[in-house]
Design a protein around this nucleic acid. Sequence first.
RNA 1: AUUCUCAGCCGGCG
Length: 249
Amino acid sequence: ITSFNTMVSAYAQHGRIDDARRMFEALPERDMVSWNGMLTAYAQNNRLVEAAEMFLREMPKHDMVSGNILLAAYGQAGRVDDAKRVFDGMMEHNLVAWNGVLIAYAENARIEDAKLVFDAMPDSDIVSWNVMLGLYAQAGHLEESESLFGVMRQRNIVSWTSMVSGYAQNRQLQQARGLFLQMPQWNVVTCTAMLLAYARDGHLDEAKLVFDGMPERDQAAWNALLEAYAEARHLDDAKDLFDRMPERN
RNA sequence: AUUCUCAGCCGGCG
C-alpha cells in the first residue's frame, strides 16, 4: 500500500492527475495517506471542485491533514472565506492548520484578519512569524516587519529573505543591502531577491556581481537578471546572457 | 523523499 501511495503522489507532483486517480482506484485498500494523497493531487493542480467533492462526499473520514490540504487549497485560490469555513469545521487544529488560515489571509492581503489569527493562535512557530513578517513587508509596513524581525526568537533564511525582499519592493536599497550583508547564509532565493533590489534601483553592475557570486543559479535567477537587462535596454548584455543560459524558456 | 503550512524572477489560468 505504501508503494501505491508513493505512486499516487509521484503522479500528482507531475500534474498527472488522471494517472494518479487510476493508481488510487487500483488500490486494494486505502488508508488516510492514500486519501490525503489523492486529495493533494487535486488541490495542488487547481482542481478545487474535485478536491471539495472528494473531501465532502467520497472520503470515509478526515484527519487533520485532510482539512489542512483543503484549507490551503482554498487559500491559494483566493477563497479565503471558504478556507476559514474548512478551518471552522475541523474538529481540532494543529499548528499547521493555524498557519494555514494565517497564510490564507496573508496571501490575500487581509492584514487585520491575519493579525487577529496570529494573536489568537495558541502556539506559533517560525512559519507563523515569517508569514506575518512577510505580509507586513509586502504591504509596505516596514516598521511592523522590522519590529517582528527584531523580537523573533529565531530567524531562518526565510525570515531574512522576506525582509530583504520587502525592502526591495519598497525601494529601500540600502536597507536591503545592509541586511543582505549581515545574513548568516545565502542561497539562490536570497541572492535573486537582492539582485532584483539592485536592478530595480538601476544598479545593474551590482546586480551582475550578485549573480556571479551566487552559489548556484536556477531559472528564476537567470530570468531576473535577463529581465533587468531588458528593462534597462541593455540589449547586448541581455543577448549575451541569453546565449549563456543553460535552459531557455 | 508515501499525505498538510512560510521567502526570490517570468509566464499561464481565474
